[in-house]
Every structure is written in structure tokens, then in C-alpha cells.
């Protein structure tokens, strides 16, 4: 019965729940979904991680390659991050080149990772101006049920933390490269950015903030995905994005940041227990 109601009157259905101070899946407004994390499930990738936040599933795999560094930055390696939203994960995405939405998501994730400086690109350089590592980090969404950016960032950081680089010897005269797979060292990861998504619902009385929204909730709040993304990096803010939706009440702004901070601590713990 409620399924039919949801399809015919989605707004009213949603409003009924909100007026009862509960969300359609039974959560409170500031409650997040449970997180399941698994590292190195894919052995063909050099490092990988899988996350499940409620129904949202994202897999991240890292492939290592070698290349010559750019002429303008001879002692920097490369970190290439891409988010793929497959047509498989939701009926909203069509096959073909990535949509505008997918590009926005990909760009946001890239911004957060680059600006949080959790990887020093100089660590990826092997011989200045000659040889450097390229980390291709591909995040693939298998099931899109809201808050993808949170899931993407967490998988990416987990897989980066479990990545180890094989030893490389480079002969300067002959330019011969030799890779020793048996001798590997862990990559140094210094920051730990954690993003938290919010959706802001404009109810007649006041604006209500929902933590960790599902796709249905994101749709009801009318933004490009989540309305607000707050990213903490070990006690420092490293990115706040606001995409449409209602305005945030002044009194809840501080509260919002605290919720995100609390969640970042929790995710940090989850990552640590997963990798230990």
C-alpha cells in the first residue's frame, strides 16, 4: 500500500513522515546509515576498497603505472582520480560518456583529495625529471542510493592507505627500469578527509536538515545530489559545498558542522579497524 502511495504522491508521502519527526527509512533527522568497509577485495588491482553505506555501494581500485613527470613539475608524481557513475547503478544514468552530474561529482572528489594534501606528490617521484609513479584511482558506483561523495572519499582514502609501492631501480646511463615486486613499501598518507552530505528540506514551518540522505530524500530536496557537503580533515575543515536546496537556519549551522565532525571521527575509527 505505502509503495503505491509513494509513487503517486511522493511529496505528500515524504511530508507525512517529516511531520512525524521521522524519515521514510525510520531514521531520525541527524542519524546516519551504518557503514560497511572492506579493503583489498580485488586482487588484480594494486589496492582496493569497497564501502556500503546503507544501500550505496562504491568500489575503488588503484592501478599503478610509471611515466615521466611533467616538465614544469619535474619532481612531482601523478594522482588521477575518476568517479564512474555506471548506468548499472541507477536508472537515471544512461550509457555513454559521463553526464554533467557525474563530472560534478568527479570534480568535487578530486578537489577534496588534492586540497586536503593527504598525499605528497613528491613522494611519488622516483627520479627527478625521469620517472614517477602514476596512481590511477577509479571509484565505481555500483548502487546509487544517495551521499555518493561520502562513500567515494572514504573508499579512496582506505585504498590509498593500504597501497604499497614496489621498489624501482633506475639506471641513469642506460635509462633501464627494473621493478622488484617482492619488495614493497607502504605509501605515506598524511591527512584523512571525511565528507558528510546533508539534504535541506523546505517544510512550511522551517527548513529541516537531513544527515546522510538517500536518493529519494535528495530528490525531494531538489538539489544536484546532496545539498550540502561538509568535509573535515582531522579537525580542520577542508571543503564545504552547497548545491541548491533551501537556506540553512542560522542556529543549525554550528550544529551541522558538529554532526559532520562527529561523523568524521567515527569514519576514521572504521577505517582504522578495517586496516588493522
Amino acid at each position: 500500500m505505502s509503495d503505491v502511495y509513494k509513487v503517486i504522491h511522493p511529496n505528500k508521502y515524504f511530508n507525512d513522515y517529516i511531520s512525524l519527526n521521522v524519515r521514510p527509512d525510520g531514521r531520525k533527522f541527524d542519524e546516519q546509515r551504518s557503514i560497511k568497509l572492506n579493503a583489498n577485495a580485488i586482487s588484480n588491482a594494486d589496492a582496493s576498497a569497497l564501502i556500503k553505506c546503507g544501500n550505496t555501494t562504491v568500489v575503488c581500485g588503484i592501478t599503478l603505472e610509471l611515466a615521466t613527470p611533467k616538465a614544469e613539475e619535474p619532481d612531482h608524481g601523478f594522482l588521477v582520480t575518476n568517479v564512474e557513475l555506471l548506468p548499472l547503478c541507477s536508472s537515471k544514468f544512461k550509457p555513454g560518456p559521463p553526464s554533467d552530474y557525474a563530472q560534478v561529482i568527479s570534480n568535487t572528489v578530486n578537489d577534496i583529495i588534492k586540497n586536503s594534501k593527504c598525499i605528497d606528490l613528491k613522494d611519488l617521484c622516483i627520479v627527478s625529471d625521469k620517472l614517477a609513479w602514476v596512481l590511477y584511482c577509479d571509484m565505481v558506483c555500483l548502487d546509487n542510493d544517495g551521499s555518493i561523495i561520502d562513500a567515494c572519499i572514504t573508499t579512496l582514502i582506505t585504498s590509498l592507505k593500504s597501497l604499497s609501492l614496489p621498489a624501482v631501480s633506475f639506471d641513469v646511463e642506460t635509462e633501464e627500469v627494473k621493478v622488484d615486486i617482492s619488495n614493497k613499501t607502504l605509501l605515506k598518507v598524511t591527512g584523512l578527509p571525511v565528507a558528510t552530505s546533508f539534504a535541506i528540506y523546505q517544510s512550511p514551518e522551517s527548513n529541516i536538515v537531513l544527515t546522510d540522505p538517500t536518493t529519494f530524500e535528495e530528490e525531494m530536496c531538489g538539489g544536484i545530489g546532496a545539498n550540502l557537503i561538509v568535509c573535515w580533515n582531522q579537525g580542520l575543515l577542508c571543503g564545504v559545498q552547497k548545491y541548491g536546496g533551501g537556506n540553512i537556519p542560522t542556529e543549525s549551522q554550528k550544529n551541522l558542522l558538529q554532526v559532520a565532525k562527529k561523523r568524521s571521527k567515527l569514519v576514521e575509527e572504521v577505517i582504522e579497524t578495517c586496516l588493522s
Binding site: 611515466a67 615521466t68 601523478f78 559521463p98 578530486n110 614496489p166
Partner: peptide
């Protein structure tokens, strides 16, 4: 539409 790595990159394998 995507972020690209350097063109001449080769797998370490």
C-alpha cells in the same frame, strides 16, 4: 570529461 593521466604512462608490470 574525465581526469587524464600522462599519455606515456606504462604499467610497472
Amino acid at each position: 570529461r574525465r581526469f587524464n593521466g600522462p599519455e606515456d604512462s606504462v604499467s610497472y608490470k
